[in-house]
Design a protein around this nucleic acid. Structure first.
Lengths: 134, 134
DNA sequence: TCGATCTGACTACAGATGTAATCAAGAAGT
DNA sequence: ACTTCTTGATTACATCTGTAGTCAGATCGA
């Protein structure tokens, strides 16, 4: 049996990271290398989680090869394997593909029309464009 | 018992729509009012779904109050209650909040940097900005 | 009238996810 | 040496999601 999604050789695309798991990733991206207890110190209060919950999420992330677990004495030190930009890029692309037929410009148009963009945002984007243009 | 999320009076924000459910919504947004069989005709082939699957998704969407089911003889005619723009806006906002600290401009910056924006996209956005500016 | 068909309702069931308890092995204090 | 604490591993369990099967009632055709 063993369903294991692929397990075969080579590069099997990074598995999808859930929202709770993402919260853990943010901590690792932000702080570098941490133990489970450290991660919990960072988010357990905010999210109302207990240490066991964090440990579960960490091990799922290890399985998904999104983070690594290096032994350090009797415990593990966890650190991100997947780059934040990779994750952010993937999620952004998924959204654009699903909701805007892959046209990123449509997303921007939507944000603008729905007034999700402040004056300030608009200015920033304009500056960005100027920078990109030459 | 009865877990029912809220059920209490008044406006309980629209429940989250899953990806499969979203595919059904797209059909209804696109085609207006359809029977289950009609919806299936539209997507069952693409997605490799069977009619029962579509029916399940439709009834879950009814529960979530995302669509309405008006009786028509022995069957139902389904049509979207939630506006597409509402859905698209919500999902976009969620992404921006989760990944870009709520700053939409950061999303645009990311898209630009990651070359998710083609020359053409950039031109479109520029035109958009121009239009918005006065 | 009688069977074939269409339809929604209900049921099913595996995998993902959120959230956690329990347990066993090692470390560390006393 | 013995207890206590820490830590990962294992197990648990409800909900959500994807995907569908089954069933009973209405309808339509013969």
């Amino acid at each position: 049996m063993s369903k294991s999604k692929d397990t075969s050789s080579g590069t099997m695309g990074p598995e999808r990271i859930s929202e709770a798991e993402h919260a853990v990733m943010e901590v690792l991206w932000d702080r570098g290398t941490l133990s489970a207890a450290d991660v919990c110190d960072e988010i357990c209060d905010n999210r109302g989680w207990s240490l066991p919950t964090v440990k579960t999420l960490l091990s799922r992330l290890v399985q998904k090869q999104a983070i690594s677990a290096r032994p350090d004495g009797r415990r593990f030190l966890y650190s991100a394997l997947m780059a934040r930009s990779e994750y952010v890029g993937g999620e952004s692309r998924r959204l654009v593909d699903r909701l805007f037929g892959g046209k990123a410009a449509s997303l921007v148009a939507h944000l603008a029309e729905s007034e999700a963009l402040s004056e300030n945002d608009l200015a920033e984007i304009e500056a960005l464009l100027k920078e990109l243009k030459q």
